[in-house]
Design a protein around this nucleic acid. Structure first.
Length: 498
RNA sequence: CGGGGCGUAGCGCAGCUUGGUAGCGCGCUUGCUUUGGGAGCAAGAUGCCGCAGGUUCAAAUCCUGUCGCCCCGACCA
């Protein structure tokens, strides 16, 4: 028996025992978060009814609760894009092969994971069509038609759509073959304007993650090795997950005029000369839902930040068959709804305990219990999802206290995520320190770096870590690269990534 | 792509070694009683045993092939 089969055997039998022990209680017990993070994650996405697996490997069904999270994310982000002057468009799902191949680096980067359509009905197509893995080429083809003059610039476009990348290893939300996202594509008169746009949209992403998702991120630049195929520079926001691994949560690319040249996009400039415009693109995908799960979740399941939670408050009536209870509960619901909250009154005929567990699994930020005793006392009981803290709320103060509780919960989520990141972040002056930091567990390892890709590759080989980003907020940890000893140019955050 | 494991009711699994009427728990349906942390009793319904061949009087069980999923590793804009 090989080592891995022994490990597998002991895991499955352990699970069997767990299941047997839990049978009385529930069939939906999830793996403890610190026992097997990967399994915990899969348990969550299925048990919280975010997704179901489909007939095609790597393509998941977003169930109503999971899709509602995406809709809330969309609503907020779309507003932020509109506020920064962007317009939504929709491009076709297919890209002719000749179009995809116009930019050399781009096609090389994406070719291995592109899905092709070769037949229309039973007829072989004269040119095969790729199912878009990203839409730079389509936008460029279109921009070439509509940009003539500096007066046509800037073009600030965004589209909400799905893209397909034929991945070998897949995980719900984190890496699937088809996923939903938004991709912004912009064209500018000058290099500076495009560079500014790249940074501006990264800042929109950072703001969105920190303000609404309560997820601290590090923003910075990718090394050349890690940058987007065809980009001059790629910027990223990196978030640390519960287990210390890094998740690239949004990217913003500066393309220079490379694509413009490849696609022959030209405009007449103010000085009556023909110029190539400068381009950006930026994207956030449903992967961000994976980030939310892995940042905030715990042993009881999901914890959703209120801003994107499909249900912000669940009202659970206790002894709901008794006269007056359901009426009191639905009046609570109506008042909270009127106060602008997303509320569910769970009047299903499950026991209260079952409802508690169920809504905890689904990450509802705040639960309100109301039973005969409360009604008599003119109160209800609010329970925070993140720390199970119970607060007695006078019914007369409902509209004031509930938003307060949600807001302190938001602060709590952010603080907890931040302190997890801080406790797993290591500043390393030399190779020895880096090595021992890596040994002490997954995390962010900050070091200086000479800028040479050879050193980057060496760290991958020797310590199995890759560069996550070169943060905008640089620190001076030492004067030399810990790998080669040459003068250090940048501070880099290293880690292992999802 | 390499190594390992698993496909039996909606879910989790037993049965396979040694072939002989398809099982258990949860869930589901109906009724009654319950309700402040995953309720109880009673009566029900649900299976091309992944698929295709083969051996046999007889296959969930043995043999061959095949497809799918999971884990570990490699790869991964």
């Amino acid at each position: 028996m090989s080592l891995s089969s022994i490990i597998h055997w002991s895991l499955t039998s352990e699970r069997k025992l767990n299941n047997m022990a839990n049978d009385k209680k529930t069939v939906e017990a999830i793996t403890p978060i610190n026992e097997d993070f990967g399994r915990w994650y899969t348990d969550i996405v299925k048990n919280a009814e975010l997704i179901d697996y489909s007939a095609v490997k790597g393509c998941v069904i977003l169930r109503p609760y999971g899709y509602a999270i995406w809709e809330n994310i969309q609503k907020i982000m779309d507003g932020m894009f509109k506020d920064t002057g962007h317009e939504n468009v929709y491009m076709p799902i297919f890209i002719p092969e000749s179009l995809l191949q116009k930019e050399k680096d781009h096609v090389e980067g994406f070719a291995p994971e592109v899905a092709w359509v070769t037949l229309g009905g039973s007829e072989e197509l004269t040119e095969r069509l790729c199912v878009r893995p990203t839409s730079e080429t389509l936008f460029c083809d279109h921009f070439a038609h509509i940009i003539q003059s500096y007066r046509d610039l800037p073009k600030l476009y965004n589209q909400w759509c799905s893209v397909v990348r034929w991945e070998k290893t897949t995980r719900p939300f984190l890496r699937s073959r088809e996923f939903l996202w938004q991709e912004g594509h912009t064209m500018h008169e000058t290099r500076e304007q495009a560079e500014q746009e790249t940074q501006r949209m990264l800042e929109v992403y950072r703001n969105f993650c920190e303000k609404y998702l309560k997820m601290p991120v590090i923003s910075g630049r990718k090394t050349d090795k890690e940058k987007f195929a065809g980009a001059v520079a790629t910027y990223t926001i990196e978030a640390m997950m519960h287990d210390g691994k890094s998740l690239q949560s949004g990217t913003s690319h500066f393309f220079g005029d490379g694509f413009a040249r490849a696609f022959d996009i030209k405009f007449t400039a103010r000085d009556n000369t023909l110029q190539y415009p400068f381009q950006t693109s930026w994207g956030v995908s449903t992967r961000i839902i994976g980030a939310i799960i892995m940042t905030h979740g715990d042993d009881s399941g999901l914890i959703l930040p209120p801003a994107i939670a499909p249900i912000q408050v669940v009202v659970v009536p206790v002894a709901q068959h008794k006269p007056g209870v359901l009426e009191a509960a639905s009046s609570l619901r109506d008042r909270l709804k009127a106060a602008g909250l997303r509320v569910l009154l769970d009047d299903s005929d499950q026991s209260p305990g079952w409802k508690f567990a169920q809504h905890e699994m689904r990450g509802v930020p705040l639960r309100i219990e109301i039973g005969p005793r409360d009604i008599e006392a003119g109160q209800c009981v609010a329970v925070r999802r993140d720390n199970a803290e119970k607060t007695v709320v006078a019914l007369s103060e409902l509209e004031v206290r509930v938003p307060e509780l949600l807001s302190t919960l938001e602060d709590g989520l952010y603080e907890r995520a931040l302190s997890n990141r801080e406790s797993r972040t290591y500043a390393c002056k030399n190779f020895k320190e880096l090595e021992s930091a890596v040994k002490s567990g997954p995390g962010f390892y900050k070091t200086m770096w000479c800028g040479d890709e050879a050193c980057e590759l060496k760290l991958k080989e020797q310590l199995d870590i890759s560069s996550r980003c070169m943060p905008f907020e640089q620190e001076n940890l030492s004067d030399v690269c810990p790998v080669c000893g040459r003068p250090a140019k940048h501070m880099v955050v290293w880690g292992s990534a999802y």
